[in-house]
Design a protein around this nucleic acid. Structure first.
Lengths: 335, 335
DNA sequence: CTGTTAGCGCGTTCAG
DNA sequence: CTGAACGCGCTAACAG
């Protein structure tokens, strides 16, 4: 495989000139450009980014570490990240942690080994260890989707507390007094914030007899299914369920189908995260929709700015609003 | 940032011994191991994979180039690839081409620059240029999901022709004689094979008056929507639609909702690609389900074997069967 | 506008 | 079982 010296020799210039041509750095006469271009074509030369990165200390690579690439919410973030990164000349490495802290650590170490220029992280937990680790090694990092406590870091996320608050207000306005929230893992900020928003709406409502139950599980369909079985076996039975993410909502739907419970006639259902239009067979779920694509874009722009700026600067916290989309699953005003 | 020499100095050994420790290559006394381990921890040393790759000629990185990461079919493939690669110590770079040949070429060039050890490609077109390009540069490649003509290459795909044949047989057995297939782009093997399978079933059926129409569009919801409007404005109106992928099926569903056409009472609908259970709010669509995860796994295993073997060996063509999943959208026997 | 020199951090090769 | 020397392919720094 040809290297830069071969190209230089063939074009009758010095290797550094070829380098400048390839990277558009420094000057290069038109005549030289033509000859270099020809030499590259003839030799089918492909620059070696490993060598380049070793020398120049940057790789034009970003990493997106997330918890589940099969979740369309994260897929949409990923698109936002890729589109933005690509426009700025960066390529993106994706890593799946499956909500596992040890997987997260493994990947982060690997990314430092690869000397990626920056990292976008959806942290498995809201503890600060991972962020601190990356910062200690002077790699720019932006946290997406979730809060992290006890550390200064850039964050781009959606206002889960407010979204949950509004969704719960909707249920209250429809007459529901017995609401169960089916949430994700404790220790994950989105799971906790959505419970908190729900709780705030209920306490503000100042209702005497409100049966309110909260369940912490996983952000999976399976877990949503199980939490629903539990929630509906309580008495008084809840008249509305609040699913803290899209997979939980679908698990809840499935459980209620299996139980012969009609939605929304018997039990109303609202959820977090909308599905992309291309995936919705029947528009049905009332949800708080997060601007996932925009979150990916914003986070990436901040990260790239950090990389270029050299200066650590101040830290941004961007909190975008969720949009309440009312569909059939939340039902009508109840008696 | 500490390098291997710093570690060696601190541990009182030669750099090469540290290298052997890290890579588990060659021998290293227990005593040396302990001292090296301590030195790495104290210095917070992180090996530089750029330098390592530059020297050793491999990066332990694979690439998955696909057309649309927001499509759950490809996401599932991606999981299969990642799980398998990860087990074997490889990391994976994902690239989105959006069905664009020029994007594909751009990414492939970039991946060669990064010296990835191997490439998994879902080709935007069934022409051979991309594959030939990669092979010319001696990088192992395995094609997933689609056939490529005119070149020897490993392929892992699903039997689209047979799946479409069986789906069409199902429609015929239900009494449908006027069927329209809404397919993807011409030049994409899966789009063409599904039309071919449909056609074979119809020609075998030996029916006099079978109105059969085919439409080539894109593998998107939008295109599915438009093709459906067209198909249903023909006369005689088709009694069944065959959507060649999941997005097209959802577009068709939406179009029929807008037209006030009931599925399956007025028009039956079958499609290709199932959605993951976690995404199905209401099980409804009758589909030919492809073993996406398994396709990802198999392709990755073949690729890794190729990389390790050094020998080009012979080429595999793995063709997995689609599974027909009958649900409500295909309806009952019609009059 | 172009070239020279030097070295990034590692692993291969060969010698003990 | 361990080490010394060298060079992978490129670009930073400086010189012209």
């Amino acid at each position: 495989m040809a290297n830069i010296r071969d190209v230089a020799k063939r074009a009758g210039v010095a290797p550094i000139t070829v380098s400048r041509y390839i990277n558009n750095s420094g000057y290069c006469s038109l005549e030289a450009r033509v000859r270099i271009k020809a030499a590259i074509a003839e030799l089918e030369y492909i620059p070696n980014r490993l060598a380049s990165g070793l020398r120049s200390k940057h790789t034009n690579t970003l990493a997106l570490v997330l918890t589940d690439i099969t979740n369309p919410f994260f897929t949409t973030i990923a698109r936002g990240v890729e589109d933005t990164a690509s426009d700025a000349g960066y390529t993106v490495v994706f890593c799946n942690t499956d909500e596992s802290v040890s997987e997260e650590q493994k990947y982060l170490h690997m990314l430092l080994e690869q000397r990626v220029d920056g990292i976008l992280l959806v942290p498995a937990l809201s503890t600060s260890d991972s962020v601190t680790f990356i910062q200690a090694h002077h790699t720019p990092i932006v946290v997406i989707d979730r809060r992290v406590s006890g550390v200064k870091v850039d964050v781009v996320r959606c206002d889960s507390e407010m979204g949950a608050y509004e969704l719960t207000r909707l249920l209250l306005s429809l007459g529901h007094r017995h609401i169960s929230i089916l949430s994700g893992p404790m220790g994950v900020s989105t799971a906790e914030d959505r419970v908190a928003g729900c709780e705030r709406a209920l306490s503000e409502a100042d209702i005497e007899d409100h049966g309110w139950q909260k369940y912490y599980g996983l952000f999976t369909q399976q877990s949503g299914y199980e939490m629903t079985l539990q929630a509906l076996s309580n008495s008084p039975k809840p008249t509305a369920l609040f699913a803290a993410n899209n997979f939980i909502a679908i698990g809840a739907l499935k459980a209620m189908q299996d139980l012969g419970v009609r939605v929304p006639e018997d039990v109303a259902l609202v959820g977090f995260d909308d599905l992309p239009p291309a995936l919705i067979t029947f528009p049905f779920l009332t949800v708080a929709a997060q601007p996932a694509y925009e979150m990916g874009r914003k986070a990436t722009r901040i990260l790239i700015a950090k990389i270029s700026a050299e200066t650590t600067g101040e830290f941004h916290e961007v909190v975008l609003p969720a949009e309440i989309v009312v569909r059939r699953s939340s039902g009508q005003v109840i008696g």
